[in-house]
Computed example of a mutant assay.
Amino acid sequence: MTDLHQPHSQTVAEDAEAASRAARYPLLATPHIVLHGSVDHDMYVNFRQQLINAPVEGSLVVSVSTLGGDPEVARLMGDELRLLREYTGRETLFLGKVAVYSAGATFMSSFPVDKRFLTRGTRIMIHERIISKTVNIQGPLKTVIAGLQANLHEIEHSIRIEEEGFRDLVAGSNISFEEVQKRAPSNWYIEAEEARDLGLVLDVI
């Protein structure tokens, strides 16, 4: 006979477990920096202002929810937090909420895996960088060759930056760099609990 109360019991148990996990990390309840929306120049300005206004001592919690954006802005924000850690020794914690897609995952990669957290139901999405460019071939032949080489160098350099980001993202986790390379072209979505099980984040709250 089917237990009609089982789904409710499971939900109650899951809620209790989530509450227990959240209680382990009280700092995550009130992030010092809250970022949401597209990763762009406006987010960077907002990030800088919140960083200036944040407490100057103790752990710094950064909450992020984004569908993606500019990976270079994500790298810039991450680099500023890296410098903060190295110069002051402060702990920085990452809390992903709902969606940590694309440039959001790039930003997350700037935090050590044992300083990353996700809320229940959050998903990470990892993909390759995208380029959209029209190359117009016109002019002296040598100039045309130089122009094509410049575009090729741009792509090659972008690939190197992407690979550096992938290595940072999975460093210390159970995911290999080769696995990311294999799955990123088709947009790799990772649910919160799977990310925890893979060691990509420390815990889910």
Rank of each mutant, 00 (worst) to 15 (best):
H8D: 02
V100A: 07
T88K: 10
N136I: 11
G121M: 15
L27P: 00
F107D: 08
D70Q: 09
L81A: 06
H36I: 06
I159G: 10
R75A: 15
V45D: 04
D168M: 15
V201H: 04
N174R: 07
T92V: 15
I159R: 14
V201A: 11
V12L: 15
L152D: 12
A99P: 04
E80Q: 09
A19V: 05
S173R: 01
Q6A: 09
E179G: 05
M77T: 08
A171W: 04
F117G: 04
H36P: 03
A171S: 13
L84T: 07
V62Q: 13
I52H: 13
Q181I: 01
L148H: 04
F177I: 06
L200Q: 14
L93I: 09
S176A: 08
I33H: 00
V98P: 00
L35K: 02
F117A: 11
A184G: 07
H8N: 07
E17F: 10
L35S: 12
E179T: 12
D203V: 02
G68Q: 14
A195R: 05
A23R: 08
M108G: 14
L27W: 10
N174I: 02
A150N: 09
I126G: 04
L27R: 01
V201R: 11
R48P: 10
L4C: 01
V170R: 00
T30M: 11
V170T: 01
D197W: 01
F107H: 10
G199I: 06
Q50G: 05
H5F: 11
H157Y: 02
L93Y: 11
M125V: 03
I126T: 06
A74F: 10
S186Y: 12
S186P: 08
I205D: 07
S176L: 07
R75E: 15
T88A: 06
R183E: 10
S65Y: 12
S132I: 00
I205M: 13
G104N: 13
P7M: 10
H157C: 09
I175G: 15
V113G: 07
L198N: 12
S132T: 01
F177D: 05
N46Y: 02
R167F: 08
G104Q: 05
E163I: 06
K133I: 02
L60E: 13
D197S: 14
L118P: 00
S63W: 12
K133H: 09
H127P: 00
D15P: 06
T106G: 11
E164T: 08
R167I: 13
A18T: 03
G147S: 03
P112K: 10
R90N: 06
E162F: 01
L83R: 15
V135C: 03
G121Y: 00
S59Y: 06
S176K: 09
L28Y: 11
R82G: 11
V39Q: 01
S102V: 09
P140F: 02
L27I: 04
I190R: 04
R90I: 02
I137H: 08
E164V: 05
V61C: 10
D203E: 15
L152Y: 15
G139L: 04
L84E: 03
D70G: 02
E178F: 02
G96R: 06
E154K: 14
E178I: 03
E80F: 13
E72K: 15
H36G: 13
E193C: 02
L84S: 09
E193P: 04
M77P: 01
A13E: 07
I131L: 03
N136S: 05
E163G: 07
T143I: 05
R120Y: 01
D3A: 08
A18P: 00
A22P: 00
E80H: 12
T30S: 14
I131C: 00
N136E: 10
P185F: 04
